[in-house]
């Protein structure tokens, strides 16, 4: 059973790589498509791309580590992006980030041990007028303070508890 799921897991990557073979745009776009499918860029998918397309692995790896949009590690089910643009910083974004770290029990931005949440720092999400801002699973939350941070993380946890029942 486990092996069948593993094999299925790379089917999507194979399709993306086939598409790229037919219409080679740029390796960055390829990585973006892989990341969109898996929520990270799996090493296995890059190796497959190297075998199928002849793009050197070190080139793909170089791109995946250069561009911030790519993650080489599996990410959490939920995603929190804390904006650390200048406008948010002068309105206390550093404390907001610390608040999220504390509530999630993380020493630094990254993924929680239970793979529930990935906390990221973004250098400006372009909604500066309503800072400090965080984006929770694609939804923007402006005018944050630490009490809202606490509420958000707690409701995220409660949702997951509910889903598990």
């Amino acid at each position: 059973m486990a092996t069948a799921t593993q094999a299925n897991k790379w089917e999507q990557a194979a399709v993306i790589i086939e598409d790229y073979k037919a219409n080679p745009t740029s390796p960055i776009m390829l990585l973006q498509d892989l990341q969109a499918a898996y929520n990270y860029v799996p090493a296995e998918a890059m190796e497959l791309a190297t075998r199928e397309l002849g793009i050197p692995l070190e080139q793909l790896y170089g791109l995946a580590t250069f561009y911030k949009a790519f993650s080489l590690e599996e990410r959490g089910k939920h995603n929190i992006k804390v904006c650390k643009g200048t406008a948010c910083v002068v309105r206390g974004a550093a404390d907001i980030l610390d608040g999220f770290l504390r509530e999630l029990g993380l020493p630094r931005p990254g993924t929680t041990g239970d793979k529930m949440v990935t906390l990221e720092v973004v250098n400006c999400v372009g909604a500066c007028a309503i800072g400090p801002i965080a984006i929770l699973d694609g939804e923007y939350h402006g005018h944050l303070d630490q009490s809202i941070v606490k509420d958000r993380v707690e409701s995220l946890r409660a949702e997951d508890e509910e889903a598990r029942k």
Binding site: A87, V89, N123, C124
Partner: peptide
């Protein structure tokens, strides 16, 4: 590629 933080 508007990257300057604080400009949008």
């Amino acid at each position: 590629d508007e990257g300057d933080p604080g400009a949008y």
